[in-house]
Design a protein around this nucleic acid. Sequence first.
DNA 1: GGCGCTCTAGGACGACTGTCCTACAATTTT
DNA 2: AAAATTGTAGGACAGTCGTCCTAGAGCGCC
Lengths: 188, 188
Amino acid sequence: MPAVATREQIVAAADRLFYHHGYEHTSFADIAGAVGLSRGNFYYHFKSKDAILDAVIDARLADTRRMLEQWETEAATPAGRIMRYVEIVLTNRADIQDYGCPVGTLTTELAKLEHAMLGQAGRLFTLFRTWLREQFAQLGHAEHADELAMHVLAFSQGVAVMANAFHDEAFIQREVDRMREWLHTYER
Amino acid sequence: MPAVATREQIVAAADRLFYHHGYEHTSFADIAGAVGLSRGNFYYHFKSKDAILDAVIDARLADTRRMLEQWETEAATPAGRIMRYVEIVLTNRADIQDYGCPVGTLTTELAKLEHAMLGQAGRLFTLFRTWLREQFAQLGHAEHADELAMHVLAFSQGVAVMANAFHDEAFIQREVDRMREWLHTYER
DNA sequence: GGCGCTCTAGGACGACTGTCCTACAATTTT
DNA sequence: AAAATTGTAGGACAGTCGTCCTAGAGCGCC
């Protein structure tokens, strides 16, 4: 098998395991088992566990950019695009109830570990923040665009943590509805 | 030194370390070093790491109950008491920016570890939830008290995650102000 | 066939983990 | 003073961790 395909398999497995069980709690053996490779052989593809994390974050950044670009084509209005983001917590409610938000939980964990890759993980948040800010600017609120973007991010993180803690789908739906109404007050 | 004092020292040190570095990332050696005891000797006081976590959660539950009772005496109105909760993110902003919310981050971590003590940690959330629900009921919104309580909890968790990720004090202040205005619409 | 490159298996390594045990100091009780 | 209790130190234990090394399989190219 070509190295690139194996590398992608490793990244995909690590991505899933980091999300489900956390970075620290996922061992090389776990990833190796998921891909079907021997443990020691990993150093041909990645020279350290940090390098895998780096690749996982890069992959998530690329996936996120792809998703945001797709939203640009699917939703015609900035408000519609913002709602696309808000509704992630509904779309991914099953995973969120089980594992929380992939971005939020990773950032929280890396902060506690004082991990060198924390800054890299922060770029995931910044990517959403910048995109949301642009949507609010297009909506005609350039002056407070960043504050509104941060508010929407905080909404999603709050819902994710609570949904993970209480496994309450009705709660998620209510909060999304509340957010939709809030967003209407900013539409012109 | 009597055992009870040593035990309390261990719980206090473990509480702080679990909050700062996470449960899994904190080892017996770390706690022992913080208290100034030998590693192996812990089994005289706690028979397992889970037992320490259990004691830490119990201590946090007791501290939280004390805090909530104090709020009952300090704030005359239910709205004032709810604002006391909302303003935690401001009062504890330094710790929150560094380590996030003690309750939220612990629950998130234990969920990923599929740890048996996850249910115990959930009681911390439930304690706040029940208390907030009671305040909203006293405010005259008995019918939606639980939904409103969950909304306030989600607010605090969202702010905590974002403040931890971006270290933005102005953001915390803005969100608290936003929450104060929101709460005014529910006052009679 | 022989060479070189890509990829892999398997194990060794030192460090660290939670757990447990035993011997001993300190203190209290008899 | 002797005995019993309470608390401690230090190390052994089996296991796991991330890391690294070596030998060799599979393959295209000369």
